[in-house]
Amino acid sequence: MNLGKRDIILKEIQYWRNSRLLPEQYCDFLTNLYDDETKAKDSNPLSLHNIGQGSIKLWLFGFGIISLIFLISLYFSVFPWPLQIATALSVLIVCYGFAAVYRDRQTVLSLILAGAGSVLTLGFGLWMIALHDLNPDFWRPLLIAGCGLLWCVLGFVLRIGLLQYSGFAFWALLYAGFAGAFRPEASIFELELLWLPLCIVMVWLSWLLHHRVSGVSGVYFAVGVSLWMMPEIDALLLRQDYPQWISLMLITKIAAGLALLFMYRKKWITWVAS
C-alpha cells in the first residue's frame, strides 16, 4: 500500500476513534496494523527511511562499495587480461543478479541495477578494446552484437522492456553499419526495402505473441514503430549526399505513422497492454 492510501486510512481510523464509531481497542489494533505494515516495508536496507536512521552497517557497506568501484577504476588497466575479464564478469553478475532478486520487491532499484549493468557491459568492452589495441573494425561490431543479444535475453527474462528495446536498437545499429558498408550508395528505395520488411515482421510478432507471451508484445511493437522511420534516418545520418527532400519524406512518414496508429488504436493498445 502506498503512503497516500495509508495516511487516508489512518485519518479515517482516527475519525472513528474521535466519533466513538468503533471501540478504542479496535482503533488501536487497526492503527498498529497499518503502522506495522509500514515498518515492514521499511525493512529494505536501501530505503530512505533506514538511510536517515544512520545505520552504521549500511553506511560502512556503502563506503565499501564506493571504495571498491574506485579501486577497480584506478587499477583495472594494470590487471592482466584474464583478471580484467573476471573482474568485469563479476561486476556484471552482481548487477544483473541483484536486479533479478529485487525485480518484484524493489522495481526502481532493480531497474537502476540493470541499467548500471548494461552501461558497464558496454563500458568494460570499449575499455578493453582500447587497452589492448584491438582492431576496432572487428571488435566493436562484435561488442555491439554481444551487448544486443545480452540485453534482449535479460530484458525478456527480467521483463524489463527498456532493456530489451535497447538490445534490439543495438542490433539495428549493427544492421545499419553492415548495410552502409556494403551499399554506401544505396538509393532511398533500397533503404525502404532494407528496413520496412523488418518493421512489418516486428509488428506481426507483436500481434502474434500478445496472447502467448506476456511482456514482449509492447517491446516488439515499439521496435516496429521505430523501424518505420529508419530508412530516412539511415539516409540522413549514415549516408552521404542525400537529397534534401528526405527530411520532408521523414515528416510525411511520421504523419502517416501517427494516422495509422490512430486508426488502429484499439487493436495495438490491446497488444501493448497484454
Score class of each variant (00 low, 15 high):
2 N>G: 08
3 L>P: 05
7 D>K: 09
12 E>P: 00
13 I>C: 05
15 Y>L: 10
15 Y>N: 09
19 S>N: 14
33 L>D: 11
35 D>H: 01
37 E>W: 07
40 A>F: 11
41 K>A: 09
46 L>D: 12
47 S>M: 02
48 L>C: 05
50 N>K: 07
62 G>Q: 07
64 G>S: 15
65 I>T: 09
66 I>P: 00
68 L>C: 09
68 L>W: 10
70 F>D: 12
70 F>I: 13
78 V>S: 15
79 F>V: 08
79 F>A: 07
80 P>G: 06
87 T>R: 04
88 A>N: 01
90 S>P: 02
91 V>E: 05
102 Y>N: 08
105 R>V: 13
107 T>N: 08
114 A>E: 03
116 A>V: 15
118 S>H: 00
120 L>Q: 03
121 T>Q: 14
121 T>M: 15
122 L>K: 05
122 L>M: 15
123 G>C: 02
125 G>H: 07
128 M>Q: 10
128 M>W: 04
132 H>I: 11
134 L>R: 07
136 P>W: 04
137 D>F: 12
145 A>M: 14
149 L>Y: 08
153 V>E: 07
160 I>Y: 02
162 L>M: 11
162 L>N: 07
166 S>M: 15
172 A>W: 01
172 A>S: 06
173 L>F: 13
178 F>M: 13
180 G>Y: 04
183 R>I: 05
186 A>V: 08
191 L>Y: 05
192 E>Q: 06
192 E>W: 06
196 L>Q: 13
196 L>M: 14
198 L>A: 12
199 C>M: 13
202 M>K: 09
203 V>F: 05
214 S>G: 13
216 V>K: 00
219 V>R: 00
221 F>E: 03
231 P>I: 00
235 A>T: 07
238 L>Q: 03
238 L>W: 03
238 L>M: 09
241 D>C: 00
248 L>M: 09
249 M>G: 12
249 M>Y: 13
251 I>H: 01
260 L>K: 01
264 Y>V: 04
265 R>C: 09
269 I>S: 14
274 S>K: 11
